[in-house]
C-alpha cells in the first residue's frame, strides 16, 4: 500500500534490536569467559608455586629465601604473575599478620625482605592459599627445634 520499503520498515526494529542484543551478549560473554579462565589460571599458578617450593615437609628460613629466588621467581615469570610468599607460625592463623610475632619471613620476587611490610602490596583480587610446613628459624641459634608453620602464597596477574 505504501511501497516495498514502507511495508518492511516495521520489521527492521525487532531485527536490529535482536542483532544488537546478540552482539552485546557475545561481547559480554567473551569478557566473562576470559575473566573466569584467568581466575582459574591464577589459582593453578598459585598451586604450582606452592608445589615448587614445598618439595618436602620442612624448610628453614635460609632455604625459604634461596628457593624463592631459584624456583618461584622463574615460575612467576613463566606464568606472568606477581606473588608474595609468607612463612608464618601456624598460631597466626585467623589473626592479622601486621606486627604479629608469628611472622617469620617473606619473599616477593624482587625485594627479598624479612619484614612484613609486603602485606600492604597484596591487592584484594589476589588468590591466597596456605600450606602446612614444619620450619626452623635459622636466625635463632638458641632453639633448633622445628615449629609448626604455614606457607602463605598470594598470587595475582600482572
Amino acid at each position: 500500500m505504501i511501497g516495498p520499503i514502507g511495508d518492511d520498515l516495521p520489521s527492521f526494529f525487532p531485527i536490529i534490536a535482536g542483532i544488537i542484543l546478540f552482539l552485546t551478549s557475545i561481547a559480554f560473554i567473551a569478557t566473562e569467559f576470559d575473566q573466569r579462565n584467568m581466575q582459574l589460571r591464577t589459582q593453578r599458578a598459585a598451586v604450582d608455586i606452592a608445589h615448587g617450593i614445598m618439595s618436602h615437609g620442612y624448610m628453614d628460613t635460609a632455604d625459604f629465601q634461596r628457593e624463592c629466588k631459584t624456583i618461584v621467581v622463574p615460575l612467576s615469570k613463566k606464568n606472568n604473575i606477581h606473588f608474595i610468599l609468607f612463612l608464618v607460625n601456624s598460631s597466626a592463623y585467623g589473626e592479622p599478620l601486621n606486627g604479629s610475632n608469628a611472622f617469620i619471613s617473606a619473599c616477593n620476587g624482587s625485594i627479598f625482605t624479612s619484614s612484613n611490610n609486603s602485606l600492604a602490596k597484596i591487592p584484594s583480587s589476589a588468590t591466597v592459599i596456605s600450606y602446612p610446613i614444619a620450619y626452623r628459624n635459622s636466625s635463632d641459634v638458641t632453639d633448633v627445634r622445628r615449629d609448626t608453620g604455614l606457607l602463605v602464597v598470594a598470587v595475582w596477574r600482572r
Partner: peptide, 21 residues
Amino acid sequence: SYIVDYVQDTIKALYYTDVSK
C-alpha cells in the same frame, strides 16, 4: 585437589615437627 595436597603436606610435616613445640 588443594585439600588432598594440604593433608598430604600435613602428613609430611609430621615427620619434622618437634612435639615439644
